[in-house]
Design a protein around this nucleic acid. Sequence first.
DNA 1: CGATGTCAAGGAATC
DNA 2: GATTCCTTGACATCG
Length: 314
Amino acid sequence: MRLGFAAKVTGRPGLKEADGRRWQNNPHLSVSLTYLEAIFDYLRDEHITMYRISSRIAPYITHPQLPQFHHQIEECAEQLARLGERARAQNLRLSMHPDPFVVLNSPHEAVYAAALRDLDYHARFLDALGAGPEAVVVLHGGGVFGDKAAAMARFVDRYLRLPEHARRRIVLENDEKSYSVPDIVAIHQQTGVPLVLDNLHHAVNNPDHLTIAQAADLCLPTWPQGVTPKVHFSSPRREDRVVRRRDKSSGKTLLAEVAPLASQHADWVDVDEFVAFLGETGRWRYDVMLEAKQKDSALLRLRGELAARGIVTE
DNA sequence: CGATGTCAAGGAATC
DNA sequence: GATTCCTTGACATCG
């Protein structure tokens, strides 16, 4: 079992995940890839073997008004191939997760078109690394648009019509609001798309009251032979947190303490909850993407706590 | 330099 | 129909 984390590194100062400058300053994938190389060094040093690459790694690559950014993958082909080689050399499983406004089943043609551009980009990025089939693009079901059956049918139809290189990469994750485990199972049955089980989303969006074991029994066998399935794991935030929010009378941004929503990720992973999850899903083999706010620091802490209990991860 | 405003992008809930 | 929230932190700019 591999443990992974997403995008941002907290455990070593100075590591960035993407060239985040505004378009006026000509950010570029080639800069992001120098950052990614430094992250790979860190992952190697810490023996971390799974990592989600930020979708912002290629700035503005699908922006319709900024064509000068559209060929960054081609422009960085050699650099990408070298990094892919490195990832394989250090046994690193990679993935990506498009932002929530990539909505494949939107009834708005322009949104659909943008989703197609984005999925093409994510797939081509992983292809340019030469990544194997374990490197997936994790997608959500999208919107409901007042008619869930129609929205799901639209997802199925559009998924089946995706270009092959994109369809090959995509896996579908249950979300915290619209598409529960039984929903994505129904989509799987019509498409064959592999399913990612997210424990926290399942906890807050579980209309059929399935146990986590039942949910795992539905999701994990959807992966093809030879590709280790993946799950997302996080603990729910329980403490209030400080956020910046706009005050509507003054129009100013202020700090405020707000209570957590049930669906929000905690800073760290609760080892007891994690061990319980392992116990309930013990008949399956899978890798775990941790979605804790403290990212790699949470991973390293959890790994230590697991080792103290005699549970060793890859 | 610290504080605050801004950023490409969607959807849903609320009024 | 317009506004706000979800949520993301880093960048950019202002005082």
